[in-house]
Write a protein that binds this DNA or RNA. Structure first.
Lengths: 205, 205
DNA sequence: GGGTGTAAAAGTGTATACAGATATACAGAA
DNA sequence: TTCTGTATATCTGTATACACTTTTACACCC
């Protein structure tokens, strides 16, 4: 059990909803759970903190982040800004191979969605969508925001109709990429994200 | 000497040019320097890594980040995207008090610039410029990018003419804010950033 | 009941020690 | 000289121990 393993496992717990926003994460308990001392646990918590999944304060126990309504709005605004920009860059450089990879990612995400593992597939599809842009830093920022948003979503049961809409959006995005309709594709992505934001916000109050 | 103190001190060294990009940072040496054990040093290095100032790899010594040309371009593209957006949001909500604070920051940055501490003043001025938007996450992202860029700049001697152009840009931005000329202000910010990028790129090869 | 002070319990931060991995220096071969 | 293999020195990762801080629980007073 390395710190990386520990942080990955905890990330799954957080994003899977086992650890709800606001939960406390005592180092000692985690150390016992993973069969290590507190040192690698501290390391793992530091990783999660820099990924934006937990909050650390001196002499305080770590907590799973809990975003306010305004913070959720800001996060989605940032995703809109960064993802539409990255998508536009990707579209300009998209090769037939990239399109095939997007097809593959779409098929996989479709599979995962029925397997109660929708978010994994979502991240995979969008990663494939943006990969042609070859912008690792921007991609990393987007991943961070995506994870932060997902922590908030994880505590709610996702409705099947949401999943359907979401899969339809992905399929539409794929089609628009293939057809080379860049402005329509960008618009669809924008709608996809604002839709996701609004369903999350409707659950928050 | 807390981990936070240590990371701040190291950050100053890195951004001040004492620790050039690529320098190694052995935990033991730092522990001796700061009079603590290696544990808080590891903590400080983790902070710097999450701020994007050093690179950490398992069982390897920490290194000050060294960006490639493409990474510099990507970083400035991201700053352009995030800073122009944040500036536009700030302009919409700018009050007379905010304008006074910007005046104050401009005066201070003018002072710091003559004191060989230009970057501190630069960060201060831009923070004042964006503060009315009240977007902590976006501001944090921008700060991270700004620091990452500055690490690369730190190793070069800044020409006085650059500082002059840079101060003139700031003054112009302030004036455009006061005059309420939002589109011209946004355009000036864009020029300010692309100018900074190009001088950095000209030094890189 | 509701607030307040205090002591025990639980938790965090860090020094020390040691095992394992990496980097360095140097001798010998091409 | 330049490359390669190897022994040594250095460095990192983590368990343990202990001091200090925060949290919790409970008795007390209003």
């Amino acid at each position: 059990m390395t710190p990386e393993d520990i942080s990955h496992t905890l990330e799954k717990d957080i994003l899977g909803g086992t650890l709800a926003p606001g939960s406390v994460l005592p180092q000692g308990a985690l150390a016992a759970r993973f069969g290590v001392s507190r040192i690698p646990v501290r390391d793992a918590l530091a990783r999660l903190a820099s990924a934006g999944l937990v909050e650390l304060a001196p002499n305080r126990r770590a907590r799973v982040v809990q975003m306010t309504r305004d913070e959720v709005i800001e996060a989605y605004d940032l995703r809109l800004l960064l993802e539409t920009d990255l998508f536009a860059r990707a579209l300009k450089r998209m090769t037939p191979q990239d399109l095939d990879r997007i097809d593959y990612a779409l098929a996989r995400s479709d599979l995962e969605a029925r397997n109660a593992n929708w978010a994994e597939g979502d991240a995979l599809f969008h990663a494939a969508l943006y990969a042609p842009a070859q912008r690792s830093r921007q991609q990393a920022m987007i991943d961070g925001l995506r994870r932060a948003c997902r922590v908030q979503i994880a505590s709610y049961a996702i409705l099947p109709e949401d999943t359907d809409r979401w899969l339809a959006d992905h399929a539409a995005l794929r089609d628009l990429c293939r057809a080379g309709q860049t402005t329509a594709a960008a618009e669809r992505l924008r709608a996809h994200l604002t839709g996701a934001r609004d369903t999350l916000l409707s659950h928050l109050t």
